[in-house]
Design a protein around this nucleic acid. Structure first.
Lengths: 381, 381
DNA sequence: GCACCGGGTGTCAACGTTGTCAGGGCAGCG
DNA sequence: CGCTGCCCTGACAACGTTGACACCCGGTGC
């Protein structure tokens, strides 16, 4: 798809125009017939430069296509780099990308740049990329850690780089964190699904990698709901682990095939929810009687009658950005743990299988049913 | 939401543990009782270091929490920075974030890091961020330009930094580019919608900022389809401009209110398609007879009966990444223009308003109806 | 005439690192 | 014994930039 074999015919000289090696202050200074320092002064609008000289220097810089080497400048000045590192699992996932967008929006006005990199949920890759970012002198590090204990982060952090853990906090750290109220959110969804089933409710669940603390917290929320309703805990036959749309679709198909079939299915993240919706749709009549809910909002959830545990990923990012900014500005207080609330958005009153878009008046959009868990707390390290 | 007023109680000394100033090679050298150079050698596994010395140095480095300053190292070595800059409109948009993910995946193995920044479709912001990235010595620049002529990019590019234009190529440049076959894709969608209407087809369109070349190309594709079908060009009353979900929803509602109402609506990007689906759903009976198609795939398109002009944004990103890598490795050929084909995925045979998930066997998923336009070409600058 | 002032410019060093080169110690060999 | 050659180490310079400081010059005040 790259087009390696594309024809190299005309316009071959196009890139021959001014291969223009990198210009330094020295080049500019020579061109203008002044010392390097004077050139520096002129370009930085420092006082005590004769107007005529300044003009000559500026002209020379323009002709040479000079651009200051901000890296060298910062080194000399002892200024910290303006880079903030973000390590997430997969930028293609809307959750992480909205997070990234939120962070970027918040830190850009302060002149900080966001460096994004993916770990693909591989702990070794995470370690490598964290190390690489730290060597690049990032000013702060934001990590959605895929490791269980995060012990390597404790290690790395020592040199004093601010660290913000997102989504998975790993209480080990004395680092700032921004997480969701996973347990309450899952509980709310489960309670809705239980209430919603007529007769004896039978709830099945697709969950993420159990290694991750988010998954465990969400399962705990489900357990809370079952317990509160006086029902038995989830049996192993009612839980499947999956990690992408395809495997979730298969997993849910299996869950639906159980006898008796579930009356409701809860999917623990956005990928899994998409898979669940597809599987339920594919199950036809059998699927039509199953209520479905998912963690994390989906663009068209209302249209497919998917109830969701919604939250604002971009706002989470902004919260992260704010924490980063405060630390960068020298805030030295104890670790802060921001817990972002979730909102249950009920998109099909109970059960599914009504006319396509009949669910709710779509224009009305998102009805906020309930806000669980309130915001910021400070937890001991 | 940040939790400014969170209690600062216990654990207040948590961050007092080792404020650990940044360590340099000098500290390590002193600790190990060797010269700076020897320390450097030991840490870089250079030959001719006595094993005992190397061990002492490594130990000292570990104790000091030393981490090499890769920036300074690169400066000294004259090595180019490993940063690749990406400037897009809005990272929260799945299209851009998938693009970013694709680029990152492709360049990471080569040790390059992706710096992402948003222009929010503001030409001035774009210029500012491009300048800032170039001062940071980015090794290559990837831009989804929001300007009309891109003349500032021609300017900036002079110092020889490789530039890849994405999505909007701005033929002005002699820069590499990766774009979609917008015209053919829109034409295919329009043709489908026209064929699909029973009786006299009446097509309405929601389009993006007309300033952008993608929008214009897509409208041209629609014109192609109308012309080929012997129909009149789009009247002004059948086109609305919108830029986000909300405004698209309103715009489509207006379009639907026309008399006679359209038999089909084509939305020119993913935000607009979401808005269109919502508006059509809200229109109830009236909406039920309208066929809807959108440019850019949506996760749940099949489930809501939305026909889409699909393409693989992440693969586009990979293509960009490959171009970047080749340039970075010294490729000096003429500008290459990669055109990525689109695929029309028909999700409702004709019209909508069937049972919710009745559209197609959802499991089967995406039927590839047609592939328009083939891949790589080289165009003269 | 001379000291003084302040604008305008240049020299030097340094940020943290590594390449170059020179030097010291020791073994081998004639 | 002295030379050569190898291992190991350190002093120095330099990457591109800017801060500290010194200098030169013309004008002003006495």
């Amino acid at each position: 798809m790259t087009g390696d074999d594309a024809s190299r015919s005309a316009a071959a000289d196009a890139s021959a125009v001014v291969p223009a090696p990198v210009r330094t202050l020295q080049h500019v200074a020579e061109l203008a017939g002044v010392s390097v320092k004077t050139a520096s002064r002129a370009l930085n609008d420092e006082p005590y430069v004769a107007p005529a000289t300044a003009a000559r220097v500026r002209d020379a810089a323009a002709r040479a296509g000079y651009r200051v080497n901000a890296t060298a400048r910062d080194l000399r000045r002892g200024a910290p780099s303006p880079l903030v590192g973000l390590v997430s699992a997969d930028l293609a996932n809307p959750f992480y990308s909205r997070l990234a967008a939120g962070i970027e929006r918040e830190i850009r006005p302060a002149g900080l740049l966001l460096v994004t990199s993916s770990s693909d949920e591989d702990p070794d890759a995470e370690r490598a990329v964290v190390a690489s970012l730290l060597e690049r002198q990032v000013r702060a590090l934001v990590v959605v850690s895929t490791t269980e204990t995060h012990e390597h982060l404790a290690e790395e952090r020592r040199p004093g780089t601010p660290l913000v853990m997102v989504d998975r906090s790993g209480s080990v750290e004395d680092a700032d964190s921004v997480t969701l109220d996973n347990r309450a959110g899952a509980r709310a969804a489960a309670e809705h699904l239980l209430t919603c089933s007529s007769g004896a409710p039978r709830l099945s669940v697709v969950t993420d990698l159990r290694r991750l603390e988010t998954g465990r917290a969400r399962l705990a929320g489900v357990a809370d709901a079952l317990h509160a309703a006086g029902l038995d805990p989830l049996g192993a036959d009612r839980v499947r682990e999956a990690h992408d749309v395809r495997s979730a679709e298969r997993a849910v198909a299996e869950l639906l095939a159980a006898d008796p079939p579930p009356t409701a299915v809860l999917a623990m993240n956005n990928r899994l929810a998409t898979g669940a919706v597809r599987a339920v749709a594919a199950a036809g009549e059998r699927g039509a009687r199953v209520a479905v809910a998912g963690f994390d909002d989906l663009e068209l959830a209302a249209q497919v009658g998917l109830t969701v545990v919604a939250y604002d990923a971009e706002e989470m990012g902004r919260a992260v950005g704010r924490l980063v900014l405060e630390r960068v500005r020298g805030e030295r207080g104890p670790a802060r743990r921001v817990v972002v609330p979730t909102t249950l958005v009920v998109n099909s009153p109970c059960g599914r299988g009504h006319g396509a878009d009949a669910g709710l008046p779509a224009g009305a959009g998102r009805g906020h049913d309930r806000v669980t868990s309130l915001t910021p707390e400070t937890a001991p390290a």
